[in-house]
Design a protein around this nucleic acid. Structure first.
Lengths: 137, 137
DNA sequence: GCACTAATACTCGGATAAATGCTGTCCGAGTTATCATGG
DNA sequence: CCATGATAACTCGGACAGCATTTATCCGAGTATTAGTGC
């Protein structure tokens, strides 16, 4: 039931890309790593994974880097998390060796998780990032 | 974002205890392990953990075993999962080294997860366990 | 039939091993912009 | 001023090492019931 560091790194990177989305030019991995405190060599693999999932575009060569493939208001936390971890059904005990009696319960959990993550848009996070002192209880 | 086998085992064990709750007499670990397909020696540690969290009572000695400490309709999936994995806040990136910008997002996820798990009662699972052919989409 | 003892069936909990997954780095290869150099 | 080549700044992706967690077992100790034994 835990969120991996890899997943948080992905979200931080996506946040950084969202903040620079309007400019239109690519952001290189080194910059993202520095700005968001992510191990640089590790981040590259995460960005490539995000790219394969279609959340990120890349530009090769000098002055290259990464950009969001979609506008931040069309990307949800669910998209990012599943891009990194794979489908949530695979993380819950819903496979062949799982208990049939518990399956409906885990399905409901999966649905709840999915819907709460789908409600969180990347642009919301980015906008809150501008107002530095916000507190959620 | 995944549910450990340990956690599923705990739920299976709780389900078995719920089904035998009315009889009032303790169920030994061997029986639970056989009935629910759980490695026996592993299960013991899980049961003790559930006991420490106050979900389960135990009776030592011959004819001893384990019983639910509360009625099945007062136990939620959330209770079981947090008994095994600890508080969900500890599983999400909400610690000191976490990104402040993402914190509100993870908090909302935690709340969503918590509330969806709190809606699932152990007795509901147990009742569905009687009707063998139920499908959830 | 009763007291006492031994055996048995359990829980309790720490230590530990094996397997798996997570985090992170390294290296080589490919691609594009930029810069330098010569004509 | 232009073409050409070299260099530098990037992405791409597999392989791999180190570490932490998960999963599972082992063993010894404690506790209550049951069975057996002698009187």
């Amino acid at each position: 039931m835990r969120i991996s560091a890899r997943c948080e790194y992905a979200c931080r990177a996506m946040l950084e890309l969202a903040l620079r989305f309007q400019s239109g030019d690519p952001v290189n991995s080194t910059l993202i790593a520095e700005r968001r405190g992510i191990p640089e060599k590790y981040l590259v693999h995460i960005l490539l994974q995000l790219k394969r999932s279609g959340l990120v575009q890349s530009v090769r060569g000098a002055q290259g880097g990464y950009l969001l493939a979609q506008a931040p208001n069309t990307v949800t936390l669910y998209d990012i998390v599943t891009a990194i971890d794979g489908p949530i059904e695979d993380q819950l005990p819903l496979g062949d060796d799982a208990s049939a009696e518990l399956r409906p319960a885990w399905n409901r959990v999966a649905q709840g998780l999915k819907s709460s993550m789908q409600k969180i848009l990347l642009n919301e996070i980015a906008e809150n990032a501008d107002k530095p002192d916000m507190y959620y209880i």
